[in-house]
Deep mutational scan, measured.
Amino acid sequence: MTTFKLIINGKTLKGEITIEAVDAAEAEKIFKQYANDNGIDGEWTYDDATKTDTVTE
């Protein structure tokens, strides 16, 4: 398992969460579901060097 981080730069929700996932694709799926569940819809970027997804509304 690898640690992945999501940075949220939303209009109403800001912060970050960290998860353990098998790979980047699994982490992205989990993060996008989390964002959807919390009403966050924005531009996504991924930095492989830091294993960090960022969503900005």
Results as ranks from 00 to 15, higher is better:
Met1Gly: 05
Met1Arg: 12
Met1Cys: 14
Met1Thr: 12
Met1Ile: 08
Met1Phe: 11
Met1Glu: 06
Thr2Asn: 07
Thr2Met: 11
Thr2Gly: 06
Thr2Ala: 07
Thr2Val: 12
Thr2Ser: 09
Thr2Pro: 08
Thr3Cys: 15
Thr3His: 05
Thr3Asn: 03
Thr3Val: 12
Thr3Gly: 02
Thr3Ser: 07
Phe4His: 04
Phe4Cys: 09
Phe4Gln: 02
Phe4Gly: 03
Lys5Asn: 03
Lys5Val: 12
Lys5Arg: 09
Lys5His: 10
Lys5Thr: 13
Lys5Phe: 12
Lys5Ala: 02
Lys5Trp: 07
Leu6Gly: 01
Leu6Asn: 01
Leu6Tyr: 11
Leu6Ser: 00
Leu6Met: 06
Leu6Pro: 02
Leu6Gln: 01
Leu6Glu: 03
Leu6Trp: 11
Leu6Val: 08
Ile7Pro: 00
Ile7Glu: 02
Ile7Asn: 01
Ile7Asp: 01
Ile7Leu: 04
Ile7Met: 03
Ile7Ser: 03
Ile7Arg: 02
Ile8Val: 07
Ile8Arg: 00
Ile8Gln: 00
Ile8Ser: 00
Ile8His: 00
Asn9Pro: 02
Asn9Ala: 05
Asn9Cys: 15
Asn9Gln: 09
Asn9Lys: 08
Asn9His: 09
Asn9Val: 12
Gly10Ile: 13
Gly10Ser: 10
Gly10Phe: 14
Gly10Cys: 15
Gly10Met: 13
Gly10Pro: 01
Gly10Thr: 14
Gly10Ala: 06
Gly10Lys: 04
Gly10Trp: 11
Lys11Leu: 14
Lys11Pro: 10
Lys11Glu: 11
Lys11Ile: 15
Lys11Cys: 15
Lys11Thr: 12
Lys11Val: 14
Lys11Arg: 08
Lys11Phe: 13
Thr12Pro: 02
Thr12Ile: 10
Thr12Cys: 15
Thr12Tyr: 14
Thr12Leu: 10
Thr12Arg: 04
Thr12Met: 08
Thr12Gln: 10
Leu13Pro: 02
Leu13Arg: 02
Leu13Ile: 14
Leu13Gly: 10
Leu13Thr: 08
Leu13Tyr: 14
Lys14Arg: 10
Lys14Val: 10
Lys14Gly: 04
Lys14Glu: 07
Lys14Asn: 04
Lys14Ser: 08
Lys14Leu: 09
Lys14Phe: 09
Gly15Ile: 15
Gly15Glu: 11
Gly15Phe: 15
Gly15Ser: 11
Glu16Phe: 13
Glu16Val: 13
Glu16Ser: 10
Glu16Gly: 05
Glu16His: 07
Glu16Thr: 12
Glu16Tyr: 12
Ile17Lys: 00
Ile17Asn: 00
Ile17Met: 07
Ile17Cys: 15
Thr18Met: 10
Thr18Leu: 11
Thr18Lys: 04
Thr18Ser: 09
Thr18Trp: 14
Ile19Cys: 15
Ile19Arg: 01
Ile19Glu: 00
Ile19His: 00
Ile19Asn: 00
Ile19Ser: 00
Glu20Gln: 13
Glu20Gly: 05
Glu20Val: 15
Glu20Ile: 13
Glu20Met: 14
Glu20Asp: 06
Glu20Trp: 14
Glu20Arg: 11
Ala21Pro: 01
Ala21Gly: 03
Ala21Val: 07
Ala21Ser: 02
Ala21Glu: 02
Ala21Ile: 04
Ala21Tyr: 10
Ala21Lys: 02
Ala21Arg: 02
Ala21Asn: 05
Val22Gly: 03
Val22Pro: 07
Val22Leu: 12
Val22His: 12
Val22Ala: 13
Val22Ile: 12
Val22Tyr: 12
Val22Thr: 11
Asp23Arg: 01
Asp23Thr: 10
Asp23His: 03
Asp23Glu: 01
Ala24Pro: 09
Ala24Cys: 14
Ala24Val: 09
Ala24Glu: 06
Ala24Asp: 01
Ala24Arg: 15
Ala24Met: 10
Ala24Trp: 15
Ala25Ser: 08
Ala25Gln: 12
Ala25Thr: 09
Ala25Lys: 10
Glu26Pro: 00
Glu26Thr: 12
Glu26Cys: 12
Glu26Trp: 06
Glu26Met: 11
Ala27Thr: 00
Ala27Ile: 03
Ala27Pro: 00
Ala27Ser: 01
Ala27Trp: 03
Glu28Thr: 10
Glu28Val: 09
Glu28Ile: 14
Glu28Asp: 11
Glu28Ala: 11
Lys29Glu: 07
Lys29Gln: 10
Lys29Ser: 07
Lys29Ile: 09
Ile30Thr: 02
Ile30Gln: 02
Ile30Leu: 09
Ile30Asn: 01
Ile30Trp: 13
Phe31Met: 07
Phe31Lys: 00
Phe31Pro: 01
Phe31Ala: 01
Phe31Asp: 00
Phe31Gln: 00
Lys32Met: 08
Lys32Asp: 00
Lys32Arg: 14
Lys32Leu: 08
Gln33Cys: 13
Gln33Pro: 01
Gln33Tyr: 04
Gln33Ala: 10
Gln33Lys: 12
Tyr34Lys: 00
Tyr34Ser: 00
Tyr34Thr: 01
Tyr34Trp: 15
Tyr34Phe: 12
Tyr34Asn: 01
Tyr34Met: 08
Tyr34Ile: 09
Ala35Glu: 02
Ala35Leu: 13
Ala35Gly: 02
Ala35Pro: 01
Ala35Lys: 02
Ala35Met: 13
Ala35Phe: 05
Ala35Thr: 08
Asn36Gly: 04
Asn36Leu: 15
Asn36Trp: 15
Asn36Arg: 14
Asn36Phe: 15
Asp37Thr: 06
Asp37Tyr: 09
Asp37Glu: 12
Asp37Phe: 08
Asp37Lys: 07
Asp37Met: 11
Asn38Met: 15
Asn38Lys: 07
Asn38Arg: 11
Asn38Pro: 02
Asn38Ala: 13
Gly39Arg: 04
Gly39Phe: 08
Gly39Met: 04
Gly39Ala: 07
Gly39Asp: 07
Gly39Ile: 04
Ile40Thr: 02
Ile40Tyr: 03
Ile40Ser: 03
Ile40Met: 03
Asp41Glu: 12
Asp41Phe: 14
Asp41Pro: 02
Asp41Val: 14
Asp41Arg: 13
Asp41Cys: 15
Asp41Ser: 12
Asp41Ala: 12
Gly42Ser: 03
Gly42Lys: 04
Gly42Met: 05
Gly42Ile: 07
Gly42Gln: 04
Gly42Asn: 03
Gly42Asp: 04
Glu43Asn: 09
Glu43His: 11
Glu43Ser: 09
Glu43Val: 14
Glu43Cys: 14
Glu43Met: 10
Trp44Pro: 01
Trp44Gln: 01
Trp44Arg: 02
Trp44Ile: 03
Trp44Ala: 01
Thr45Leu: 09
Thr45Asp: 04
Thr45Pro: 03
Thr45Asn: 07
Thr45Ile: 07
Tyr46His: 12
Tyr46Ala: 02
Tyr46Cys: 13
Tyr46Asn: 02
Tyr46Gln: 01
Tyr46Thr: 04
Tyr46Leu: 05
Tyr46Trp: 12
Asp47Leu: 06
Asp47Arg: 04
Asp47Lys: 05
Asp47Val: 09
Asp47Ala: 05
Asp48Val: 13
Asp48Asn: 09
Asp48Ser: 10
Asp48Gly: 05
Asp48Glu: 13
Asp48Ile: 13
Ala49Trp: 07
Ala49Tyr: 09
Ala49Ser: 11
Ala49Ile: 11
Ala49Asn: 09
Ala49Glu: 13
Ala49Val: 11
Ala49Phe: 11
Thr50Glu: 03
Thr50Leu: 10
Thr50Lys: 07
Thr50Asn: 06
Thr50Ala: 06
Thr50Gly: 07
Lys51Asp: 03
Lys51His: 12
Lys51Met: 08
Lys51Arg: 10
Lys51Tyr: 08
Lys51Asn: 11
Lys51Gly: 08
Lys51Pro: 03
Lys51Thr: 04
Lys51Gln: 12
Lys51Ser: 05
Thr52Pro: 03
Thr52Cys: 12
Thr52Ile: 08
Thr52Leu: 06
Thr52Asp: 05
Thr52Lys: 03
Thr52Val: 09
Asp53Thr: 15
Asp53Cys: 15
Thr54Met: 09
Thr54Cys: 13
Thr54Gln: 07
Thr54Glu: 07
Thr54Trp: 07
Thr54Phe: 08
Val55Glu: 05
Val55Trp: 05
Val55Gly: 04
Val55Lys: 04
Val55Phe: 06
Val55Thr: 04
Val55Gln: 05
Val55Asp: 05
Thr56Lys: 06
Thr56Gly: 07
Thr56Val: 09
Glu57Phe: 06
Glu57Val: 13
Glu57His: 06
Glu57Ala: 07
Glu57Leu: 12
Glu57Arg: 00
Glu57Asp: 08
